[in-house]
Amino acid sequence: MPPAQTRRPAPAANRPDLLSPTEVARLGGLEVTTAGIVDGFLAGQHRSPRRGFSVEFAEHRQYQPGDEPRYVDWKLLARTDRLYVKQFEEETNLRAMLVLDASASMGWRGSDERLAKLDYATRLAAALALVLLRQRDATGLVTFDASVRAITPPRVRSGHWRQLAATLAALQPADRTAAEPALRQVVAALRRRGMVVFLSDLLLDRELTLKALKFLRHRGHDVLVLHIADPAELELGRGDETRFRDPETGRAVTLAPSDWADAYRDTVQGVVRAWGTACRASGMHYALVTTDLPFGEALGRVLAAR
């Protein structure tokens, strides 16, 4: 049995989940920082997000603040003087699949002060996976660009997160974007109802992607679309005429940002509204996450959507 640990929440100023993503990235590798993020995030919650406990005992887990007292193994407490909660096999009914866009466009960042979208998305995905796994939710991962790069089936066993984290840490942005094949793989991987978290900058074929997402929703999955965007993609800023080239397609547009700032902002807001409207209309969740958003806040949005 693991010893009982009663950790006090770290001060808000030092909590990795509330630091800027860039500062978090400076703290260490994905694996290390993600654990800190999740710990900090969970420590900040007044209620554990866990749920789905059933009657068939599976294993003990170290007590965490927010766990319902009724699941505390009082006998074990009496014997070891440490707090453990009982977990049951039914808790793993939720199977989550993280679908991560690793196309070339995800490797872009609008400023050296921010993480590239892919770096941000991998950390966010790792944190999300860790939260889910700690809840005993089987979590898998699909990475894709123009085609499916890798598929990690949903598992709940210990050590699975490290496998996911390693896969995420090794990701490099490349190639164009085509989400539909990846989402088809999700259909195959999630035979029972589960949750699909789609992380992408959504610079792809919207109609085709929405069609695939709606199909997942039709299969009964909870679908959460995380729109990963660099703030510089939302606001064009000012400046002289510039030739803007798409790193994926090579297409280019020459314009003066000063002339087009308003029009561009309107267009982006229209895209965001369109994604949100389309997702809500199909019972899916949509959240815009910018790469300057602290991971804890992003996680809060994700879990609130759940």
């Binding site: 610079l203 993609e233 002289d240 510039t242 030739r243 080239r245 547009v253 561009y264």
Partner: peptide
């Protein structure tokens, strides 16, 4: 004009 990588060219095209 100077060239700059920018993934949201699609939005620029739509806007312009």
């Amino acid at each position: 004009p100077p060239e700059q990588a920018f993934p949201a060219v699609q939005y620029l095209e739509d806007a312009t």
